[in-house]
Amino acid sequence: MSSRDVVLARIRSALGPVAPVPTVRAYRRDSDLDEVAVVERFAERVDDYRATVHRADPGGVAATIAAILVAAGARSVVVPEGFPERWLAALGDDVAVACDGGDLPTDELDRAAAVVTGCAIAIAETGTIVLDGSADQGRRAITLVPDHHVCVVAADRIVATVPEAIALLDPTRPLTMISGPSATSDIELDRVEGVHGPRTLDVVIVGA
């Protein structure tokens, strides 16, 4: 008899006859914030994590990204293959851009100063960005190995609540929910930003 059958048989004998249990979902699914307030709330909550929030209108995204990278002194940047080229237009000639089609060796990611991506969904109440591996976000490793992540968030991708976000996500994709830079509180509960994930997170909110 396989272990599978044994474990399943144990479960059945442990349970005996059981009545079905109804699931109670009386919690909030959405919020009463309007669109502008949702974006405000998102910016506030991201900022609480000690990530940096930037605002740009669609025409100013490229300049904002360039300014962030210049301020950080970043000379090598990784972007996913589907990242809009126009948003890189303001980078200086001294910034090397490596475009990842899934083929950049990990060591090269490790040497890159920053990564710039889009995002699938963002959650205002928790200050969370969600990546789903779409073309403008790339595979998971590229937003993990470089020490600085610049994430461009279109205002219309921001929802208010966690339930609203979950409803929009596709579980067949690899999903990463990011709330602020990597952090640890393992030493005397002192919060320290940046252990293994990117130590710096810049969020650029576009179009609101």
Binding site: R45, G102, T126, G133, R139, I178
Partner: peptide
């Protein structure tokens, strides 16, 4: 659970990273 866990656990609105994966994702991971 993604609302209950981080607030109860680290006392944050959301923990820095939550990874969700389903089987094997070609070209990623």
């Amino acid at each position: 659970f993604l609302q209950l866990l981080p607030r109860s656990s680290t006392g944050e609105r959301m923990n820095p990273y939550t990874s969700l994966w389903t089987g094997v994702h070609a070209g990623d991971g």
